[in-house]
Nucleic acid binder design. Structure first.
Lengths: 335, 335
DNA sequence: TTGTAAGCGTTATCAA
DNA sequence: TTGATAACGCTTACAA
């Protein structure tokens, strides 16, 4: 309704009978202002409904307080929750999140847009194809942290779950509950997380003296996963356990195994997912899964980014957050 | 690595041998620049890796190109997808999304932060407790559009699914497939969407000559839903169909009905959800649900907001997007 | 079509 | 502790 242009520090200064600098100082955490003038300023500000203009402040301080986040699909509940946690952690630290969602096609465009808003740093919780971008960002000197994703080149810092360790835990569980023909469905082969989980599984199984019974990759859609799982089940002998690199695929596998092949889970075959999302916690699925400790992952990522922004010493690091195996009904009990 | 301070329009102007205004104009869509100078500017810009500073531009034009979005929990896949679509639609229209996630507690704080960044408008896809905020925003003259949510007071514009119509469609389906004891589990009672769906159901059933067999509300958590559903199943007679106001609750209901009570779905009892999320499309659930046409909802919301920002005539409107019933295995076939 | 100069709302520097 | 003044990087009358 009342479309009056909002008051500026000038107006507040006038009303309070002080200078603009005084106003600015009252809103700057550790600045020299007498209690007296501060009070006057605050009173005047309240009267005029004044609040500092963050855009102008950004321009002046050449720090925007904005952190760019480029997310890809939020269809996977894991990424949705990750985004939520990243954003709220940023807020808690006094930053705001500039969100862009994108597929591989428009990445450059999105990135340019982010940079034009002078983001102080960038968080990349994307699953794939952010590599090129991450590198160019990092080279431009802008602080970047990859989340749930690492670069082979180790050129950019990252925070991920302990995917390798997670893979090993799954191997342990399946071995100990009597499985010997263990298959791995990995989703896109070009994501570091899927690769690491597979390596963990394989290495640990090898220590037990067996290999991975079968391995397949592809898109992590339900359809594609179904195709791959069918192929596995048609092998002779078929696997007696399938480890999927995320819950979405695990549910798809569960569907094929039970609905199409009439197998009993976990008696005939065990299914293990990853991420411990709402998909696995549902009682109808009761999917054994690996929890990535998302809260910690998000916090570490944000804190790492903030540290990077503070110091101009760009020390690289790949932080790994411990994972936890959550046993449910799609695997046999341990004893 | 190379941490040189980025070039400004000044630098480009100098290199190109023109004035800063010329540079500015080359980057302003409909401005008077000769092809000749434009070319010179572009060349110089490329050389210096220049791109306009959106923060400075915002300050100068007093339009930031930023749209605030306050989302609550993204645990519900519906809201995650909605956020994704809102953000990408905004991008497509040349805007960027400033995201804040929040619970009811810190709303005022979040809002203040958003406003301090001079957002041109605000999108509120939150499920609850945004009413107060929406009103105060709207009164401050800032364009606001509620998404998937309406205000009783009709003081603020909104875009929602046709919840009333969706409720009626469910009533039709259940009636036609022989159900006569139809219960409604609504989730939080204070959300307009849940209320409207319930009204639709009730009104249509009344036209058929029956009432709603039972009705319950509460938090839309899995646990709370289970409690409510158990109470309903213990009634005499129990309902022969349960309509839940979203898929999350419907899955919880399905769990109780099948796992705890051993009922067959849909023979003994039918279950209907809402939102047609990944939860309902899973083949193990195959949940009958109502699709809200999210793409259209997001687009309409963004377009409505943009229209509001353009004209200063703040005409109120509550837009409703048609819903589609998706029949799956938790309801009986229609013939 | 181009350049000059005055903002946009802050913060930072420097005297007082 | 305070106030004047110059940035910050861009847009936009206005004049040329």
């Amino acid at each position: 309704m009342m479309k009056k242009k909002p008051a500026g520090s000038q107006d507040v200064a006038k009303l309070a009978g002080v200078s603009r600098s005084a106003v600015s100082r009252t809103y700057t955490p550790g600045a020299y202002v007498s209690e007296e003038t501060r009070a006057k300023v605050l009173a005047a500000a309240a009267m005029l409904d004044y609040s500092p203009n963050a855009i102008a402040r950004s321009l002046s301080k050449s720090r925007s307080g904005l952190i760019g986040i480029i997310a890809s699909t939020l269809d996977n509940p894991f990424y949705a929750r990750l985004l939520e946690l990243l954003a709220s952690t940023l807020q808690a630290r006094g930053y705001a999140a500039l969100l862009m969602v994108g597929d591989a096609r428009n990445m450059d465009e999105l990135l340019a847009k982010l940079l034009s808003y002078q983001v102080d740093g960038v968080l990349l919780p994307a699953s794939k194809l952010t590599s090129r971008m991450a590198v160019s960002l990092h080279r431009s000197g802008r602080p970047v942290v990859l989340v749930n994703h690492t670069l082979d080149s180790r050129e950019v810092s990252s925070v991920s779950g302990d995917n390798y360790g997670g893979g090993r835990m799954v191997a342990d569980l399946l071995w100990e509950t009597g499985h010997r023909r263990i298959a791995y469905v990995s989703g896109p082969i070009d994501t570091s997380s899927a690769v690491d989980r597979g390596r963990g599984l394989q290495d640990r199984l090898r220590e037990y003296g067996i290999g991975v019974h079968a391995q397949a990759s592809g898109e992590d859609t339900r359809e594609q996963t179904a195709v791959v799982v069918r192929q596995m089940l048609n092998m002779t002998p078929p696997p007696d356990a399938i480890f999927c690199a995320n819950d979405t695929m695990a549910v798809a596998a569960l569907e094929v195994v039970t609905l199409e092949y009439g197998l009993r889970v976990p008696d005939d075959i065990a299914i293990v997912g990853y991420d411990n999302t709402i998909l696995s916690t549902e009682r109808l699925h009761a999917l054994t899964s690996v929890d990535q400790n998302l809260e910690q992952m998000a916090q570490s990522a944000v804190d790492m980014l903030i540290r990077k922004m503070a110091s101009d010493a760009p020390d690289l690091a790949d932080l790994s957050v411990p994972a936890t195996l959550i046993r449910r009904s799609t695997t046999r009990p341990r004893d």
